[in-house]
Amino acid sequence: MDSQHPPLETLQDIKRIMERSSRFISLSGWSGISAGICALVGAWAAQHRINSYVQTVYGGSFDSGRPRHYGLDTPAALYNDLFLIAAITFTTAFISAFIFTWIRSRRNGTRLWDRTVQRLAWNTMLPMVVGGLVILKAMEMEYFELVAPGCLIFYGLALVNASKYTLGEIRYLGYGQLILGIINLWAVRGGLYFWAAGFGVLHILYGAIMWWRYERKSSSQ
């Protein structure tokens, strides 16, 4: 029986080598956790800014009728501030995710930019770029209620599309984003909460699961 073990171990080594050559497996669970935390902070900042606008212009509620006055707080100022919050949130999340992935890539001895990573980047960015153009057009036409579900749906498609070139579990994160985005299409007034749930809570859960599965043992050694 023992004589059968070396061939079996050899096959397992070959399988690992093939997986390394065709998939980028150095995504860090901490990348998901840090991105999720950034998203929750960004959602809190956006909600705080919206509440300030509503209190100033509508006297506390959108349902209270026409605006009382704008003063220095105009719709354009609100949109600019929300865009700035979104840009800062995305940049911070991207940088933190990159740093943790870079650290794990160094630890695993894998390259951070090779042909596999290029395919991963292309399959991730294509749906996101197309989605960004669709969302910009929706904003131009003042369909602002479609921004949050559009972000979730196109991001979910990007994750599912990219799962062929990285850890397979990432497709389930994509499915979660798609489900939340589709539900949000019929619950448009809760867009910010769906956005926070998708980009914040799901990322943190995904990151924690990935850390537990793939990084816990190595970090304890």
Rank of each mutant, 00 (worst) to 15 (best):
M1I: 09
D2R: 12
D2G: 15
Q4L: 14
H5N: 12
P6H: 06
L11K: 14
L11N: 02
Q12K: 15
Q12Y: 04
I14S: 12
I14T: 11
I14E: 10
R16P: 00
R16D: 11
S21F: 02
I25Y: 06
S26V: 07
G29Y: 04
G29F: 05
W30C: 10
A35M: 14
A35S: 14
C38D: 04
V41S: 03
V41E: 03
G42M: 05
A43H: 01
W44D: 02
A45T: 00
Q47R: 14
R49G: 08
S52R: 06
S52H: 12
Q55Y: 04
V57F: 13
Y58K: 03
G59T: 03
F62I: 11
D63M: 15
G65R: 07
R66Q: 15
P67G: 08
P67F: 13
R68A: 11
H69Y: 05
Y70V: 03
D73A: 08
A76L: 14
A76G: 07
Y79V: 14
Y79K: 14
N80F: 09
D81K: 07
L82P: 06
L82Q: 12
F90K: 04
T91D: 03
T91Y: 05
A97L: 11
F98D: 03
I103G: 01
G109W: 07
L112E: 01
L112W: 08
V117H: 09
R119H: 14
N123S: 12
T124Y: 10
M125Y: 04
V130L: 15
G131T: 08
I135R: 02
I135T: 02
L136N: 08
M139C: 13
M139E: 09
E140Q: 09
M141A: 13
L146R: 04
C151R: 00
C151M: 15
L157D: 00
A158W: 04
A158L: 08
L159R: 04
A162P: 08
S163L: 02
L173W: 06
L173P: 07
G174F: 03
G176M: 06
L178I: 10
I179A: 13
I182S: 06
I182K: 04
I183Y: 05
A187D: 09
R189C: 02
L192D: 05
F194E: 10
H203K: 01
L205V: 14
M210K: 13
M210Q: 15
W211I: 00
W212I: 00
E215S: 02
K217P: 00
S219A: 15
Q221A: 06
